[in-house]
């Protein structure tokens, strides 16, 4: 038993090395990150990032529950990749971008485009001069995209999330939330298709995704630490 007595302690040492390097060391390095402050003449004008609240926070739960992260990443990589050229962001994402997310929804696959900054007006998934590029990806566009993706992106491979919408009889005035759909998708006369609370929250979350604020460690030096005067 003398030799086997060393087995589990030695294995525990391997475990400690693995844990120390893969978890503890990055925790020591990144665990205490705080938001970055933009300072002009001693006045704090901007704080980034801020914690999400309200409908966007609810939408984040919907995003996770629908498994959107199975096909969409939320990571913009640096210049060695083409992520920035594609219009998915203006800078690479860094650990500070995610400090208020428990946990960050980084995703592991890009069967669909990266959504790190999909709430930004500058976000695009087509070449800048592409004629098929939508004028804007506003709330109505996102809802229609969720309901039937091919209605707005011809060759989309995204499944429909029509089950997040309700087809209901119009009573009185049509709802302001009702989708404006092409004839082949429109409901029968007297009916309308309206988003559920989950669909609205999900769109609010997507609209909130914008990690474009300059950060020193992301290679864009436009942030100064607060200066005490």
């Amino acid at each position: 038993m003398s030799r086997s007595g060393f087995f589990f302690p030695s294995l525990l040492a391997c475990f400690a090395v693995s844990f120390g390097i893969a978890v503890y060391a990055p925790h020591s390095q990144l665990g205490a990150l705080v938001p970055s402050f933009k300072d002009e003449d001693g006045l704090i004008t901007d704080v980034y990032p801020v914690a999400q609240g309200g409908n966007a926070a609810t939408g984040r739960e919907v995003y996770i529950a629908q498994g959107c992260q199975s096909c969409h990443s939320q990571v913009v990589r640096g210049n060695e990749s083409a992520d920035i050229d594609r219009g998915w962001g203006v800078r690479r994402t860094v650990a500070r971008d995610y400090i208020f997310e428990a946990p960050p929804v980084l995703g592991a696959s890009r069967i669909g485009p990266d959504l790190t900054n999909v709430g930004s007006e500058k976000w695009r998934n087509e070449p800048e001069n592409d004629t098929l590029r939508p004028e804007k990806r506003d709330r109505a566009w996102q809802l229609k995209h969720l309901y039937y993706p091919k209605a707005v992106v011809k060759d989309s491979n995204m499944p429909s999330y029509a089950y997040l919408f309700e087809e209901r009889k119009i009573s009185g005035h049509p709802s302001t939330d009702a989708l404006v759909l092409p004839a082949n998708l429109a409901p029968k006369a007297g009916f309308e298709i309206v988003p559920s609370a989950d669909a609205k929250a999900l769109v609010s979350y997507l609209a909130s995704l914008n990690r474009s604020s300059p950060l020193k460690e992301a290679g864009v030096i436009a942030v100064a630490a607060p200066v005490k005067k």
Partner: peptide, 10 residues
Amino acid sequence: VTGVVQQLTA
């Protein structure tokens, strides 16, 4: 653990 370190732990 918080933020990105949660993903690293996972």
